[in-house]
């Protein structure tokens, strides 16, 4: 929220979620930079009124975000959400966005963490082989790396970042100790993929989101909260081609100051034999959707996909002319 507020120009409108994606990403860069000094200087609890104010501003004035929040809360709770419910949802987003600053800079004394399944990551790291960390826009991905024995996990974040160089330098400044890097999928798709392969072979972790379809991603439809939604096939295809384990990782925020860090083994190997690839792929995506739904039910205010997640899939890309 704070982040978005500092990104005044609207993103070019190609598609709803694409627009949101670039807007949010740009916001992240500007917002983190702006909020950084203030947030660190005054501390987390002193920022509370500001977080509340930002959330209130959005609850009152940003119709698009409010509409998305209402639609989500209606779907989860089965009844229309009141103003304060929407406010609480937006405040959660504002707080988690702010907390990224503390998480990335290791100013985590004001935060508590509970951990489930962390030993899986530690063991994987010790094995020397990398893995794919599958996340979702549910709670705080950044929290995963906070505190404890996994602070130094070498993680590279794979996604569509229009400003990856800027984010990289920002990350390097914010958390010089940690090796988090972002890999932009758009630059050199072939090189990116071999880089991912090299990283996994070197024992690093590749973090990616399973709930945001990119611009040209292959899409798989799977039921989510009772209705089909679009999920990217990319992470699952990648895991199958590179034969690496996949973990589901989520950091769910529990007000006022706790993050429940979940890590579960999603797949030791994702096998997608050519003959029934589509069906197998769909099984994995369904499973992912089920797990995310499970966690989302336990923390509905952590859902940060503020757009119509169940929108019909975009028209199929113009099919290539027959060779």
């Amino acid at each position: 929220m704070t982040a978005k507020a500092t990104a005044p120009t609207p993103a070019p409108s190609h598609r709803g979620d694409a627009e949101w994606l670039s807007m949010r990403e740009r916001g992240t860069v500007l917002g983190i930079r702006a909020a950084y000094w203030l947030a660190i200087a005054v501390g987390r609890s002193a920022m509370r009124p500001l977080v509340a104010l930002v959330a209130m501003w959005y609850a009152l004035f940003d119709r698009k975000v409010v509409r998305a929040s209402r639609a989500w809360l209606l779907r989860v709770h089965g009844r229309p959400a009141g103003f304060w419910q929407v406010y609480r949802h937006l405040r959660t987003f504002a707080q988690v966005t702010l907390d990224k600053v503390y998480l990335l800079t290791d100013h985590t004394r004001a935060l508590r963490f509970t951990r489930t399944g962390h030993e899986l990551l530690a063991a994987q790291f010790a094995s020397g082989q990398g893995a794919i960390l599958l996340g979702a826009h549910l709670g705080s991905y950044e929290a995963m790396r906070a505190g404890g024995e996994t602070t130094d996990l070498p993680i590279e974040i794979l996604g569509y970042f229009a400003n990856s160089r800027m984010i990289n330098s920002l990350l390097a400044r914010l958390s010089p100790r940690a090796a988090a890097k972002v890999i932009h999928l758009g630059d050199d798709p072939i090189g990116v993929m071999t880089r991912v392969q090299d990283s996994l072979a070197a024992g690093r972790f590749i973090a990616t989101m399973g709930d945001r379809t990119g611009l040209t991603d292959r899409i798989v439809r799977a039921p989510f909260f009772g209705q089909e939604a679009s999920f990217p096939a990319g992470p699952f295809l990648l895991a199958s081609v590179l034969r690496c384990p996949v973990y589901l990782v989520l950091g769910l925020y529990r007000a006022p100051d706790c993050y429940d860090l979940h890590c579960e083994r999603f797949a030791e190997r994702i096998e997608l034999p050519r003959q029934d690839r589509a069906a197998r792929l769909q099984q994995w995506v369904r499973r992912y959707a089920e797990r995310v739904e499970h966690h989302a039910r336990s923390a509905p205010d952590n859902w940060f996909n503020f757009f119509d997640f169940w929108a019909a899939p975009p028209a199929a890309p113009p099919s290539p002319p027959p060779p």
Partner: peptide
């Protein structure tokens, strides 16, 4: 053309490495 995407490219890169011993380097 064939309409391949980056996952396809990765598979091709891996196959070329396996078959011809030629590696496609990142960056």
């Amino acid at each position: 053309g064939l309409g391949l995407d980056s996952i396809d490219a990765l598979e091709i890169a891996l196959a070329i490495h396996a078959r011809f011993g030629v590696r496609t380097v990142a960056n």
